[in-house]
């Protein structure tokens, strides 16, 4: 079900999604990734989602929009999510748009996975 740009692993109540595409600029790619992420929220009740973007080097505001849609969907089902591995050069895109005020960002996916495992929903 996952698009060719996502690797999804689910274990011990945590869903780890790695985006493998470096450039998140093309509308069809962004749309496909956005749809597949939302399907995960449907598939896993009260999802604990870790979104690893360490491979992403370029992104557009359209992807930030998809991230916001995902955040709202996760919040609606009383789940939780974190974005991990954001390159330092890209972090200003999230601070300027104030996403860092409402979403959890962490340098390392493993750290968040361990936290979510220790404190299940």
């Amino acid at each position: 079900m996952a698009s060719e740009h996502l690797i999804v692993q689910a274990y011990e109540g945590v869903v780890l999604v790695k985006i493998t595409k470096e450039r998140l600029l093309e509308a069809p790619v962004i749309a496909a990734i956005g749809e597949d992420l939302l399907k995960l929220v449907d598939r896993y009740p009260k999802i604990s989602l870790v979104l690893d973007v360490a491979d992403v080097g370029y992104l557009s505001s359209a992807f930030i929009g998809k991230l916001m849609a995902l955040f709202k969907a996760v919040t609606l089902v009383k789940g939780r999510m974190a974005v991990t591995g954001v390159k330092p050069s890209l972090m200003p895109l999230f601070t300027v748009t104030r996403l860092d005020k409402i979403m959890t960002f962490a340098p390392d996916a493993a750290e968040v996975i361990n936290l979510y495992k220790r404190k299940p929903l």
Partner: peptide, 21 residues
């Protein structure tokens, strides 16, 4: 206006704000 708190959860409208940065 992305600076408006009501706009924070919108899924569009951030492009120009980012360009200005």
């Amino acid at each position: 206006d992305p600076e408006d708190s009501d706009s924070l959860l919108l899924e569009h409208g951030r492009g120009i704000r980012l360009m200005r940065e």
